[in-house]
């Protein structure tokens, strides 16, 4: 199986590669269009700021490429947010694969802190994901979130419910970091790779 991890010099993509390695899967960190197009699975990771990252993607032609992908694609964290229509983070137009808004957490009067950082529970998982991960803790680090929608197949609560996992056609994406979420995170990666 050929797995491509889209490399656009974002922070910590190495962790995704290591996580797959521990599962016995060698993945290629690459920005090469042909390689990505021909891969069996594509992972679109991301840590960073939305507008800068969209610019980097556009410079490398990766924005158009990602929209054309037909194989299973997994977006992670910022990768998930960039698959949506628009992000409030520096008013950024994103890839519009999912027709949702990415909004900033507003703690208001609550004592909750932003970013939402640490381990939180995911629930209401869609049938495709099975029950093994239902109500398990995953590792999150983010200040912006994807609103709830018909594409939400996993929910998390922080200040209010938001999308922890979304899916549409061949695209799936998680707000949490499965590669950093211990044994349970590995289940999610397994699920994706065995699609």
């Amino acid at each position: 199986m050929k797995v491509a991890i889209i490399d656009y010099k974002s922070g910590n993509v190495q962790s995704v590669k290591f996580a797959l390695q521990r599962m016995g899967v060698e993945a290629e960190l690459t920005a090469d269009h042909d390689y990505i197009m021909r891969a069996d699975k594509v992972i679109f990771p991301g840590v960073g700021e939305a507008s800068t990252t969209m610019k980097v993607l556009a410079e490398r032609g990766l924005d158009k490429l990602i929209k054309r992908l037909h194989q299973p694609v997994l977006g992670i964290c910022l990768g998930m947010q960039l698959l949506c229509r628009h992000s409030e983070e520096n008013n950024t137009k994103c890839l519009d694969i999912f027709p949702m808004e990415v909004k900033r957490f507003n703690a208001g009067d609550s004592p909750l802190k932003v970013p939402h950082m640490g381990w939180n529970i995911i629930y209401n998982l869609g049938d495709a994901l099975g029950q093994k991960m239902e109500k398990e803790y995953m590792y999150f680090v983010h200040s912006y979130y994807v609103e709830m929608s018909e594409y939400t197949i996993g929910t998390c609560d922080y200040i209010h419910p938001f999308s922890a996992i979304i899916q549409k056609d061949n695209f799936m994406a998680t707000q949490f970091h499965p590669e950093k979420s211990g044994a349970v995170g590995q289940l999610l990666l397994d699920k994706f790779l065995s699609q």
Partner: peptide
């Protein structure tokens, strides 16, 4: 960092 990241699956 590299050695830890290759073996450890938490932050």
């Amino acid at each position: 960092a590299r050695n830890v990241a290759s073996q450890v699956n938490i932050p």
